[in-house]
Design a binder for these strands. Structure first.
Lengths: 191, 191
DNA sequence: CACGAGTGGCTAATCGCGTTAGTTTTGGGC
DNA sequence: GCCCAAAACTAACGCGATTAGCCACTCGTG
């Protein structure tokens, strides 16, 4: 039996790709094993189990999302940066719905958990965007959460096909970015 | 063996309550059967299977959420209505995380699917709120999607404990409402 | 070049969950 | 008091995750 030459990152990456194809719920150890050309129990030589696999996929997805947002906003500021970040994030979620879904419901075990580290990276990319606006101090935390909620909600709902009405979804996304921009530009003004 | 006297709604409601307790992923036919005092296969006399159960729970949750938002916004307008709706929705998701989770990933099978009907009800509650702002025509669809994305994203992330930083989550929610209000008040103005 | 150890793969088996088939029991209507 | 449809039960299957235990390939070392 020739060896497949697997290692942890190969298994995790194959799992992420498979999750994108068949959906996170359809990611099964058996399917993943078949995909990488191995019998199911052999996977356990590389990952500790399904939970560990999910954590690996989540960390990978967060790192990739952070990179996508970071490079998309290079050299932009203000509304341009916001639009670039939003589009980069949504594109990532829509092209990689499975691995993004893996990031939900994974609680980091500690501050040096790869999931936590990757999450901080994504947060950093968003922080850079918000710095272009007059957001400072404690408001940064609120704005970060708002931005993350917006993007997560929209991308998740669209990826779940929860938008069934008439209007074009891309138009709605642009409208949403404009609304965020309006709200952020006056962030410090008295409500 | 004395009869338990179950019917479909009793099973669905017990399933929703159980999902809130143990999480949507922990909702299992065996546990639900034990909860209602019956053996697992007996549940299949009332629901067609786990998927059907999920649809029932989702429809129930959407109807309850619509009712909560609707009554909370009675007699309010503008920012008051927005704040009331946002709080009612978030409270519902936080107190019923399991049944709300059931609403994600359920695609209505047709226009008269109870899930679709209940979803339209929730949409109607949000539409009433947005009518207080100068939102009209095609913008209503965009604003609806924006509001839904915001609320879904925030509630989901908080319920998944994805907010790990310093600032108070309730403060962030108020800040987010203020941001939405600012953005909506100028909805029709040129960006 | 042999070899021994460790690693990566395999088979077999267990457990839990969803689901189906077939059987028994209950309780309301005649 | 009897009958039958509904509702519950037991038994059994399939599938997915996981573990235990075994074997083969490969690589570094003598």
């Amino acid at each position: 039996m020739p060896r497949a030459g697997l290692d942890r990152t190969a298994v995790v990456e194959a799992g992420a790709a498979l999750a994108d194809e068949v959906g996170f719920a359809g990611l099964t150890m058996g399917r993943l094993a078949e995909r990488v050309g191995v019998r199911t129990p052999s996977l356990y030589k590389h990952v500790a189990g399904q939970d560990d696999l999910n954590r690996g996929i989540a960390a990978l997805a967060l790192a990739e999302a952070a990179a996508a947002v970071g490079t998309a906003t290079q050299g932009c500021a203000g509304r341009d940066a916001l639009a670039a970040a939003a589009h980069a994030f949504r594109d990532f979620v829509l092209t990689h719905p499975g691995r993004y879904a893996a990031t939900i419901g994974v609680e980091p075990t500690g501050p040096d958990d790869p999931v936590a580290v990757a999450g901080l990276g994504l947060l950093g990319s968003f922080t850079a965007v918000l710095r272009s606006y007059a957001v400072e101090g404690a408001e940064m935390d609120h704005a970060l959460r708002a931005l993350r909620s917006f993007l997560h909600g929209f991308a998740t709902l669209q990826s779940a096909n929860a938008f069934q009405w008439s209007a074009d979804v891309d138009d709605s996304f642009e409208w949403l970015i404009a609304l965020l921009d309006r709200g952020l530009r006056n962030a410090s003004s008295p409500q």
